[in-house]
């Protein structure tokens, strides 16, 4: 357009920008500053350089452990969620009766909030572990697999919907032609379906990856990091550092900066990948 008069431009953008500055921009910039200081309150700070960052990695083992736990969790759930979601999508696009009904059911868990989900699965998993005389707080391994099961249950239906849309956009002539040429079901999936839904695979891969890295509510509700802080993921470890121990606020903020950089790298990588692919097409 159009040369919109300045006062209208301000009217349209200022409310959002003011709220954005209060909720995000100022806290973000101030957060970066605080990560280089020692502080109890935001007004009483002393500059300490990189020492918070050093303490985050070397002060105790918590952050490195949480990072490692998160990476392992992200990889395992990335593979499992996408396998389950893709299989569901294949089953649901094969012309079975009740497709809509099944789709509705599988998608539903995605709407339930993380805290509620965590306690639902705590009951179920502890109920199963009861037979072996243990519970979720017994070992971080239980917490790990508990979270994997929970996330699969919550997110498979979501990724499934994305895969269904991708599969349905494959031209039917392609599949028909392959069938006439004598291709069997597996060959069709390998040589037509999978290459054709590659963009969806990229989207779902990164969605599961960022969701896993940012996971907090489910982690808090299911195990709250128990035993000790062994099943705490990055977000929960940062939270505990901030609010669980006095005098560690600076370290918590430094951890949050590192966490942000990791998540940002993943997202930028994704945008690069999807963009080059779009150019190719």
């Amino acid at each position: 357009m159009h040369n919109m008069p300045k006062k209208y431009y301000a009217l349209f953008t200022l409310p959002t920008i003011i709220a954005f500055a209060i909720a995000f921009l100022i806290p973000f910039l101030f957060g970066i500053y605080l990560s280089f200081t020692n502080f109890r309150t935001v007004t009483d700070t002393t500059w300490v350089g990189f020492s918070n960052y050093i303490r985050a990695f070397t002060g105790d083992n918590n952050f490195v452990h949480a990072l490692w736990f998160t990476v392992r969790f992200a990889i395992v759930s990335l593979i499992l969620i996408n396998l389950v979601a893709f299989t569901l999508a294949l089953l649901l696009t094969g012309g079975v009766k009740g497709t809509n009904f099944f789709r509705t059911i599988f998608f539903m868990p995605n709407l339930i909030g993380g805290i509620v989900l965590g306690y639902i699965w705590q009951l179920i998993i502890n109920g199963i572990l009861l037979n072996f005389g243990v519970d979720l707080t017994y070992s971080a391994t239980y917490g790990f697999w508990g979270l994997v099961v929970l996330m699969n249950w919550q997110q498979a239906g979501y990724m499934m919907v994305i895969y269904i849309a991708a599969i349905q956009s494959i031209p039917t002539e392609m599949v028909e032609a392959a069938k006439i040429d004598g291709a069997n079901g597996w060959q069709i999936i390998r040589n037509i379906t999978i290459p054709m839904v590659m963009p969806a695979i990229t989207i779902c891969t990164f969605l599961t990856l960022t969701n896993s890295f940012k996971l907090f509510d489910q982690n808090l509700a299911l195990t709250a990091g128990a035993p000790a802080r062994e099943s705490a993921m990055l977000a929960l470890d940062i939270y505990t550092t901030f609010y669980g121990r006095v005098g560690y606020e600076g370290v918590g903020q430094a951890k949050a900066v590192v966490f942000s950089i990791i998540v940002a790298i993943i997202v930028i990588l994704q945008m690069r990948l999807t963009r080059t692919r779009e150019v190719e097409r």
Binding site: A23, F24, I26, P27, F28, F30, G31, L34, V42, F213, K214, F216, L234, A235, I238, Y239, F242, E249, G252, Q253, A256, V257, F259, S260, V263, A264, V267, I268
Partner: peptide, 11 residues
Amino acid sequence: IIPFQMVMFTM
């Protein structure tokens, strides 16, 4: 892109 933990305290 930025996770909530980055701004939770200051916000």
